[in-house]
């Protein structure tokens, strides 16, 4: 359970940003490893066949959503720190989440 003093949008956004950031750190090396397989056509084919599995497809979508959430949240933080102050920080948290969700839906529908 989130402690009472931490139960507010700014802290939820921070938690999401840290969790997505750490997940990306774990995922990216694996991603580059697979890209590296492109040097060997047979191995790449094998890897691509593996990514066609439904569960892997779903995982891939999850990673894209995490990256989208980390990116929109990161842009929000950079705006908070670098632009003149706005009192709409909670609105911005909602907007960054909304954009990430839209990106997730678009990716699932094969639009991007």
């Amino acid at each position: 359970m989130i402690r009472p003093a931490r139960n507010h949008p700014g802290y939820w956004a921070f938690l999401l940003h840290r969790l997505t950031g750490l997940t990306l750190v774990l995922f990216l090396p694996a991603h580059f490893l697979v890209l590296g397989l492109a040097l060997d056509a047979a191995a790449l084919d094998g890897a691509i066949a593996w990514t066609a599995r439904p569960l892997v497809k779903f995982g891939e979508w999850g990673i894209v959503v995490l990256l989208a959430a980390h990116m929109t949240g990161g842009v929000r933080l950079l705006m908070l720190e670098l632009l003149p102050w706005s009192e709409r920080q909670k609105t911005r948290i909602a907007v960054s989440l909304g954009l990430a969700a839209m990106f997730g839906v678009a990716f699932a529908l094969g639009l991007v």
Partner: peptide
């Protein structure tokens, strides 16, 4: 500062 905004909240 990680901009949690817990300070402002309380």
């Amino acid at each position: 500062c990680h901009s949690h905004q817990s300070c402002a909240e309380h």
